[in-house]
Structures are given as C-alpha cells and as structure tokens.
Simulated assay, not measured.
Amino acid sequence: MHLNIEFKARSSRNKELQQLLADHNPRFAGEDHQKDTYFNVPHGRMKLREGNIEHALIHYQRSNIAGAKQSDVILYQHQPDAALKALLTAALGIKVVVEKRRRIYFVDNVKIHFDEVAGLGQFLEVEAIDADGSIGAEKLQEQCRYFATLFGVADSDYLAQSYSDMLLQQPPGAEK
C-alpha cells in the first residue's frame, strides 16, 4: 500500500496549465485513453484501469472532501487480460464505467493529469505519491499546495467526488 495526497479540480485551461508546467521540466509519460471499470465492493472503491499506458487493478479509500486529501491505495499492475475483467464482473458486478483521455506528467514523485472525461468535461488532477514511506503526508500536502498555487486553482474549482460518483449522480442521458 502507498500513500497519496491528491486533489482533483475542474479546469477549462488544460492547454495553458500544461505550458505553465513546462517550466518545471516535467517528464511526459504520454496520452492515455483510459477505461476505468468500477466494481461493487463493500469498502472503498475498486476499479480496473484499461489503457494504452496504464493497466492496473486499484483499490483505494478516500474521503469525499474538496481540496487535497489522503488516499490509501493498493495497486496491482498487470498485463492486459480480458479474463481478469470477466472474473471481476462475474464476482462483483459493474457499478459504473469512466472513459477519459489523460495526459500524464511527472515532476519527481508528483503525478499530474490533464483529463478530458466523457460526459463530464475537463479536469486537472495532482497526486503527490509516497510509494515507500520515505516522504510523509506533510511534504505531500506541501507539494499539492504548491501545484494548486502554480495552476491558480480556486477553492470553488476543487472536487470532492470521484469521476465515478459524478457519473452516477447524473440523470440518465445527461451530458455536460
């Protein structure tokens, strides 16, 4: 398990924000088309991420509060395999599917996403990651504050919910 402090914010300036980020010499991991299938689980959230860059089974627990928040993550990286999705679907049932285009950057241990989510719009997500316990929550919070300030994220831009929750709350047929 590793510790993330992360925030998600609504954004209509993703191209501009990517230019701001360029001054920090980020490593560009690429643009991923991701399909996250969320399953019915009794605690936290579990999703199977299928992408052209990232493939993982992810379980996480995180409070639905706006701003930077702690997320406890268990991540299982795997090679794409249709049998895994079939097994999870049969055992747990699908809760919701989130499809997005994600541009992925890294600045040291901080992962920055610029997302275009089907049915929801554009978003910025910043994840300060402590994979081995060597950084600590305080430093991760500081890193999130730094990038929120750099990108000019207003308090009203922060999202409390996951993309999956936002999609589940939309009336049938609603598109933003």
Results as ranks from 00 to 15, higher is better:
93 G>P: 06
157 D>I: 04
9 A>M: 00
41 V>Q: 10
125 E>W: 08
27 R>K: 15
26 P>W: 02
84 L>M: 15
69 K>M: 07
80 P>E: 08
84 L>G: 03
10 R>A: 14
157 D>K: 12
66 A>T: 10
109 N>S: 10
164 S>H: 08
168 L>T: 05
100 K>L: 12
56 A>H: 04
10 R>G: 08
108 D>S: 04
62 R>M: 13
146 Y>V: 04
165 D>W: 07
141 Q>R: 14
86 A>C: 09
33 H>Q: 12
172 P>F: 12
78 H>I: 15
3 L>F: 09
120 L>W: 00
153 V>H: 00
2 H>A: 11
155 D>M: 11
145 R>K: 12
31 E>C: 06
82 A>H: 04
121 G>A: 02
77 Q>A: 15
171 P>S: 14
101 R>F: 05
25 N>V: 03
109 N>F: 03
35 K>A: 12
141 Q>C: 14
112 I>N: 02
63 S>E: 14
3 L>D: 06
42 P>I: 04
142 E>N: 12
97 V>Y: 13
67 G>M: 08
21 L>I: 02
37 T>I: 14
146 Y>W: 10
12 S>Y: 14
45 R>P: 01
54 E>D: 13
150 L>Q: 06
14 N>R: 11
112 I>T: 11
11 S>Y: 02
87 L>G: 06
172 P>H: 09
55 H>E: 01
33 H>D: 14
119 G>C: 14
150 L>W: 03
49 R>M: 02
111 K>T: 00
54 E>S: 03
55 H>N: 15
78 H>D: 13
110 V>P: 00
120 L>V: 07
33 H>E: 15
22 A>T: 11
49 R>P: 09
133 G>I: 09
157 D>G: 12
125 E>T: 11
72 D>Y: 06
127 E>F: 08
4 N>G: 05
130 D>A: 09
28 F>Y: 14
54 E>P: 00
60 Y>V: 07
85 K>C: 04
133 G>N: 13
121 G>L: 00
159 L>A: 13
5 I>L: 10
74 I>F: 05
115 D>Q: 11
160 A>P: 03
9 A>H: 01
108 D>E: 07
13 R>D: 10
138 E>Y: 00
43 H>G: 08
136 G>K: 04
99 E>P: 02
115 D>K: 01
57 L>Y: 08
148 A>I: 05
82 A>R: 12
